[in-house]
Simulated scan of single mutants.
Amino acid sequence: MTKLRLAIVGFGKIATTRHVPAIAASPDVELVAVVDPKAKSPDVPNFASLDALLLDGPDIDAVTLCTPPQVRSAQARLALAAGKHVMLEKPPGATVSEIAPLVAVAQAAKKTLFATWHSRCAPAVEPARKLLAERTIKSVTIIWKEDVRVWHPGQDWIFAPGGFGVFDPGINALSILTRILPRPVFVTRAELGFPANREAPIVVEMEMADATGLSIRTEFDFRQTGPQTWDIRIETDRGRLVLSGGGAKMSDGGNGVVDAMKEEYPTLYRDFVALTSKGECDVDLAPLQIVADAFLLGRRRTVEAFEF
Rank of each mutant, 00 (worst) to 15 (best):
V166T: 11
Y269C: 02
E304W: 07
G165Q: 02
D147N: 15
P195W: 00
P27I: 03
A292P: 03
G154R: 04
G298V: 01
D237L: 07
I290F: 06
L78D: 04
L181W: 01
P127N: 03
I142H: 02
P127R: 03
W157K: 05
K130M: 14
P37H: 01
T16H: 08
L268I: 13
A25E: 11
K138R: 12
E98R: 00
E263V: 07
K90S: 04
A124L: 04
G298Y: 01
D293Y: 03
E207L: 06
D147V: 08
N172W: 04
D284A: 10
G93I: 00
G253V: 02
P153R: 00
R299S: 13
R149K: 14
V71Y: 02
V20F: 06
A94K: 11
T141R: 15
S97L: 10
A7L: 07
P42Q: 10
G154D: 07
W151V: 05
L268F: 01
S73G: 14
A211W: 02
M208V: 05
V303S: 08
F295M: 08
A62V: 05
P21H: 11
E307Y: 11
A79R: 01
G83D: 11
A248Y: 13
P91F: 06
D259L: 09
W144Y: 14
G93K: 00
A33F: 08
V303N: 10
L6M: 15
V166A: 06
H85T: 00
A81S: 14
C66F: 11
E263M: 13
I142Q: 05
R129D: 06
L53H: 01
L181T: 05
G12W: 04
L214P: 04
K145F: 08
G256H: 12
K84T: 05
L102G: 01
D156C: 08
E263F: 12
Q107Y: 05
A39T: 06
A122N: 08
L132K: 00
T218R: 00
M206E: 04
L214F: 04
E207Y: 03
A48V: 12
E280S: 12
A124W: 02
M261Y: 15
